[in-house]
Amino acid sequence: MKKLLCTGLIVLVSWVAAGPAAAANDPETARDLLKSKIDSVLQVLEQKELSDAEKREKVESIVDPVFHYELMAKLSLGPRHWPKLSSEQQEIFSKRFIQRVKASYFDKISMYSGDADAAFTYEPIRTRNGKVHVPLQVRTENNKIDMVYKFYRTGDSWRIYDAEVNGVSIVQSYRSQFNQILAESTVEMLLKDLKSDENLQ
């Protein structure tokens, strides 16, 4: 109980610390924000007494405010296809897409969290027409993973609109798939395909 309180406090402190940092317009603050988020996520994952569901809930409460899931959904479908969907379809699409991305994100980070020696190296940020890309390398015992978190500025905060793993962008990969599906099939099929994700090996 004491430990839980303690970690809770740490999470809270890093949360609060992230707040004012994000308010500044300096691109470096995007990296600070990411760093504090990742540190808090790692702290949650290290708590062995938590069930997976509890961990997921905590992780989501940390990362959800910074990921712009709705924008990711829109970007993944792209300006060519998005307007073709009725607003009802857009809603269903976003909902299913977000579910998928969230589940996948949690699966990925918990897969590597068993590795206590995972080391995070933050590399110099890159700014590209108003966006800030924060590259980092994650080293586990068997893997070296290059990641890039891509932030854009909205209002007074940084939000993530895409992430890359070993050069593979989430938005780009989904867009390739959605383009292919919509070239050969219908929006209804796409929505159906998005839903079924538990039937694979």
Binding site: R100, S104, D107, K108, M111, N166, G167, V168, S169, Q172, S173, Y174, S176, Q177, F178, Q180, I181, L190, D193, L194, D197, L200, Q201
Partner: peptide, 20 residues
């Protein structure tokens, strides 16, 4: 783990390979 995320596994692999 990767396969689970893909909507169209072949297109995902193709896209991921070319991007990488």
């Amino acid at each position: 783990e990767l396969k689970k995320d893909a909507v169209d596994w072949y297109v995902f692999l193709r896209s991921a390979y070319e991007q990488n």
